[in-house]
């Protein structure tokens, strides 16, 4: 006599997740306990989402879910079902042209080892969507959500200010065109 229930444990502990990732539809079946970090790195191949503290503290895994910054390490994959997810891989244009945020971080030396940079870029993206011209205090408050062990933060703050300038200039160019 089998002790197995009619539903196998694989089925019982699996969940279907459908969402939009960097503008493209995704559909996966993942364990119920899979995090967004598992989903993006292992099932979607987005290695720009970094695993570090796994406690929602360091922000290296920051991605955007419906425009808001989220720690992928501390969010279950089932919670992004039906949402719009963005990772650092979706920032640059199809032809490789860097986004304003990426260009600013490069210009201002906003990274050294680069491990935290994808999270910093996503946090910057979310901030500039909410406030295209943030004051330094607000930038400081946002950036303090994430940890950088190399730069000392000053150049990251400058990078975010520069990103706001570049994004504004880009928008004005588009309007004048």
């Amino acid at each position: 006599m089998s002790l197995e229930s009619p539903e196998s444990s694989e089925e019982r502990f699996a969940h279907k997740v459908e969402f939009e990732l960097n503008g493209s539809p995704e559909r996966h079946c993942v364990p119920t306990s899979a995090t967004v970090l598992d989903l993006l790195r292992n099932s979607c191949g987005k290695q720009g989402v970094r695993a570090s503290c796994e406690r929602s503290v360091c922000g290296a895994c920051t991605v955007l879910v419906d425009d808001l910054p989220v720690a992928a390490c501390s969010t279950f994959a089932f919670d992004v079902d039906g949402t719009r997810v963005e990772t650092v891989e979706g920032l640059a244009a199809q032809d490789g042209t860097l986004s304003a945020q990426q260009q600013a971080f490069r210009e201002c030396g906003g990274f050294q080892c680069g491990f935290c940079t994808s999270g910093m870029l996503m946090l910057t993206t979310a901030l500039l969507r909410q406030n295209p011209q943030p004051e330094r205090d607000q930038i400081r408050e946002w950036i303090s959500s994430n940890t950088c062990r190399c730069t000392g933060y000053e150049m990251i703050l400058e990078s975010v200010e520069r990103a706001a300038e570049l994004a504004s200039a880009k928008q004005q160019d588009q309007v004048s065109e």
């Binding site: 019982r12 502990f13 969940h15 364990p31 119920t32 306990s33 899979a34 995090t35 970090l37 598992d38 695993a51 796994e54 390490c73 089932f78």
Partner: peptide, 16 residues
């Protein structure tokens, strides 16, 4: 206190 990796989380029956 710390699991070896994020893959080590035990699965559960989910209700939403």
């Amino acid at each position: 206190l710390i699991a070896q990796s994020q893959s080590a989380l035990p699965p559960f029956t989910l209700h939403r």
